[in-house]
Every structure is written in C-alpha cells, then in structure tokens.
Amino acid sequence: MKALAEVSLEIPRGATVAFVGPSGCGKSTLLKLVAGLLAVTGGAVVVDGRPVTGPLKNVGMAFQNPVLLPWRTVLDNLMLPLEILRENGDPRAGDRQTWRDRALTLLDTVGLAGAGDRQPRELSGGMRQRVSLCRALIHEPALLLLDEPFAALDAFTREEMWELYRELRRAREFTGVLVTHDLREAVFLAQTIYVMSSNPGSVAHVHEVKMASPRTLEQLFSAEATELIRLMREQIRPRREALA
C-alpha cells in the first residue's frame, strides 16, 4: 500500500514547518522518510544536499510518548546519546564533562534545573516530555523531528511547551519539522504549514504563517491567526467526512 504520493517540498534551513491533516494521511511516514528510518520506494529525500539512504545521524526526534529509560535518572537519560556517539567513535561525542554541562544547561532552559538526579517516574507528563525534548537536542542536531510531541499533555501544559520550543529555538539554530493534529500549535510554532490529505497522503494546501516572530500566545487570538485556523479546519474537515 502506498502511504504517500506526490509530496514535493523544500524546507529552508533554520525554519520550522508543520504538517497537519487527518489521521492516516502519512504525516508520520513523511517524518520517518526524512529521518531515513524508512526507505523511499520512489522519489528522493535530500537533507543538507545529500540524498537520504539510511538513518540520518544529525537528527533529534521526540514523540508523543516521551520513552525515557525508567532505570536511569533524568541526567543519565540525557547522557545516553553521548554513550552511543562515543562507542561509535563519532567526533561529536566530546568529553563527558562537556555533555554534562550541556545537559544541565538544557534542563535549566526547559525549567527543570535540579531535576537531573530524579527518576523519570517521579516526573509529570509535561516534565517527561521536556526531558524528551532535551534528549532530542543534546547532540545539537541540525534537524529536529517532532511527531505530535505535545498531544498527550493538557491544554495549559501544551501552551507552555510551545513557548518552551520557541525559547529553545531562540537559544539554538535548528530546523524543525513538526507533525501535529493541533492547528493552533502549528500556527504558533511554524513558518509554513502543510495541510495533508489522505489515501494516499499528499500535500493539499500550503500556508505561510505571516505573524511576526517571536510569537506570543496572545497572537493566536488575532484575527489573522483565527482566520487561518478556521480555513485549515475547513480544508481538513471535508476529507474526514469523505473518509467516514
């Protein structure tokens, strides 16, 4: 079965783009293709000028499920990427102290200063998701892939996470690719939003979000933002009905 057809797009370095659409439109497949976790059956994925043939190594990923290792402390969870890189003789590994400092700085940025020695089970869902984001960023990847990272959080925590992403992005240069069901999330975080349709998945509409950056949550209530959200909703809804 074909999950995706006729998707052709280019993501500028340093931008954050979002993919929204009904379930089964191939959003997650697209993300895995970009990461090289799935191989394309036709066409090509090019990242940083090179065609993707296997799992990329300069990528960070975070999912709806934070998948922390419950037998490691928060800090040791963040050190896991280092262990992998070091074993593989990756030049990015560096020394342990540098990584530790980097992990502590990241934890500080996401408001988890002092939580390094805690066990993941002691943290709330929002806190775990923050740690998961830190883990995705600790090797300073050029590309951050997020698959509905905040979908399991309550509305207020989710808005905090959006602001957190904004802060992380401000502190560091990376390209973000976000898959989400949340249209407000897409409008807040992305410069470009791709509305996808399913069977097989393809890009149906492209929207440039013209709101100034850095954005505030207040801006989501502006006429411009609400109009865009309403429009995308209309674009997704008939497809849902067609499916039903």
Partner: peptide, 29 residues
Amino acid sequence: LEAELSDVLRVLGASRWQIFRKVGVPRTM
C-alpha cells in the same frame, strides 16, 4: 520494546546491537 525508543537511538547512529545492549537488555531485566 517501544518503536519510538529505537527510532530515537537509530537517528543517533545506534546499531541494533547497541539498542539491544543499552535498552533491550536492561528493559528486560
């Protein structure tokens, strides 16, 4: 083993053997 967890490690260049050792074995304990 959660597929997401292997994905997180695979994009760091982790081999199957590394994922087995670092995650699979302790998780199975």
